[in-house]
């Protein structure tokens, strides 16, 4: 069968795409002007100095060396992985919170049409405005707010920002999904005289899976973006966002080092998307419509 040859082609071409990016980078670095290209006072193409565009192999090499000159310092890649895991943890907490609140709001809107009418326009509107601009303000809660026995900590601010970015796609996707069962199905459940709760569990939630998964995919990417941005504006130590700023500040002396946490953020995004993909595989039974459609 030709199946084998069909399957390796996209993989090989995909790898070629990544390689092409590297070749483009190194090619421009070799041939482009050192001070970049400026048109009418605007920088259009970057500087090709080692400071502006380090060699790809220098980036990789730097990642394998110790992070600091201090004796026994961990290599850069290890520091990056640890920071990425911290950010993943915070983003996950935010994602969970945002998902729960989003689905609860969607349930409210599905149950009471007036709630849907009242909330829906705001929900759509809020997706078009830069809510993340609030990040520095939420961050200022850190260390000052006291909720009963709980002292508000900076990482909670990061989680809250991640959660409200994750919340909107979840609410919109969940509402669309909960309303997705066709008339024949809702009629059928009505003839079975089932309660709202049973209908939800047996019909609406399973039918919502094909809508919840893409929403979760968006929400996951949003939660990670929110966590990284929040870490940057908090200066919260430990996460990948902070590391991006920290390593960039040593930029002029050590330009290759700044790329390691960025690669870490990229891998973090890919890893989280991979987890959502696996969840999608596990829920395959609820996605049969999607595949045959």
């Amino acid at each position: 069968m030709a199946v084998g040859s069909v399957r390796w082609r996209p993989v090989a071409l995909g790898a070629a795409g990544v390689l092409g990016l590297v070749v483009l980078w190194e090619g421009y670095k070799a041939l482009g002007p050192a001070e970049g290209v400026t048109v009418a006072g605007q920088a259009v193409l970057p500087r090709t100095t080692d400071l502006g565009m380090p060699h790809v192999w220098d980036m990789i090499g730097r990642a394998l060396e110790p992070a600091t000159s201090i004796e026994g310092a961990a290599p850069v890649w290890l520091a990056v992985v640890q920071a990425a895991l911290v950010t993943l943890g915070t983003a996950t907490a935010g994602l969970l919170l945002g998902t729960v609140v989003g689905i609860l709001l969607a349930l409210l809107m599905q149950r009471f049409v007036v709630a849907e009418w009242a909330v829906q326009p705001w929900l759509i509107l809020s997706q078009t405005v830069p809510l993340i601009a609030l990040a520095p303000l939420v961050v200022s809660w850190g260390g000052r707010l006291q909720l009963g026995p709980v002292q508000w900590e900076t990482w909670m601010s990061v989680g809250v920002i991640a959660s409200y970015l994750a919340f909107f796609p979840m609410a919109v996707g969940a509402l669309r999904g909960l309303k997705s069962p066709e008339a024949a199905h809702t009629d059928l459940f009505r003839t079975y005289a089932t309660s709202w709760w049973t209908t939800l569990l047996r019909l609406r939630l399973p039918a919502a899976v094909p809508y919840l998964l893409p929403a979760l995919r968006l929400a996951t990417a949003a939660a990670i973006l929110g966590a990284v941005v929040a870490e940057v504006s908090t200066g919260h130590k430990g996460g990948i966002g902070r590391l991006i700023i920290e390593y960039a500040q040593s930029g002029s002396a050590d330009p290759a080092k700044a790329w390691a946490p960025i690669a870490g953020a990229v891998l973090l995004g890919l890893f989280a998307a991979g987890l959502v993909y696996l969840l999608g595989l596990a829920l395959g039974r609820y996605r049969r419509q999607e595949e045959t459609a």
Binding site: A184, H185, D187, P206
Partner: peptide, 19 residues
């Protein structure tokens, strides 16, 4: 009669739950 489940029903679309 509906609450007591006195009838069965079938529609034009089979209306099977795909999952």
């Amino acid at each position: 009669a509906r609450l007591d489940q006195d009838y069965g029903i079938a529609f034009q679309s089979a209306g099977l739950l795909p999952w």
